[in-house]
Design a binder for these strands. Sequence first.
DNA 1: CCTTGCGTTGACGTCGGCGTCAAGGTCTAG
DNA 2: CTAGACCTTGACGCCGACGTCAACGCAAGG
Lengths: 130, 130
Amino acid sequence: MRIGELARRAGVSTRTLRYYESRGLLPTRREVNGYRVYDDGDLRLVEQIRTLQDFGFGLEETRPFVECLRAGHPTGDSCPASLDVYRGKLAELDTLIDELRAVRHEVGAQLARAESDLPDPPDPLCQMKG
Amino acid sequence: MRIGELARRAGVSTRTLRYYESRGLLPTRREVNGYRVYDDGDLRLVEQIRTLQDFGFGLEETRPFVECLRAGHPTGDSCPASLDVYRGKLAELDTLIDELRAVRHEVGAQLARAESDLPDPPDPLCQMKG
DNA sequence: CCTTGCGTTGACGTCGGCGTCAAGGTCTAG
DNA sequence: CTAGACCTTGACGCCGACGTCAACGCAAGG
């Protein structure tokens, strides 16, 4: 399989695949003419990367998973290093969510205060008259 | 007051102030020699911008607040446009928080599954022997 | 021979909010 | 006169994950 087919099957662009390769996440096997050649294992690598990316992982954070798969393990998270990344991400998410909730609370309070200072323009069809 | 003093009092860099000006958020009054000149009202503008930025608002989102202040209103959120930004941000935060919680749930599940498949290396001082 | 559809590398563009020079002008104190 | 502390504009750098374009090679069909 060449880069175009892998791209189609993985649902990414060829540019993305070349970028992953430049980051050392994909192997660099070539045909005689210089074309990149891939197999189903490489498809799994890309799928693993995409899954994690969709979760908001940075590319570097996917590296342990990729290396785990390339080492022959059944899944990308069959290795301790991957689990550490999971744990780190959980902590990061917890922190972030807490911060966002605090901000949400703040903004909500500001909105409430501002709304009470400046009551919104009354409905013209249902205006209070006295 | 000139740019350096405003920067100190607002706790930002002069670069930041010039950037705000380039975005049309700060006025462009000058002394005879070309130096920028500011007053306390401008300090309030910068403080308003910083407050919102700390909440995660983009610069463009601070514009209604800034214009509201510059229009002479007592606070940046004394205008309907500002309230709309508040409301939009609240919706955005709610969506984002929900997404992050979903991701957190997913990642947590993956970690649990992977940990059960690959129990962590037992404590070397308390290793099971039989 | 020519087109079509693949592939290749290299390099610049994107987005936000500035940081960080570079090269110069202005004003004040000594 | 000079040092220094301030100011000016302009322009490139940064981060991440690519998009997009240029200019070219390779292979097959008509």
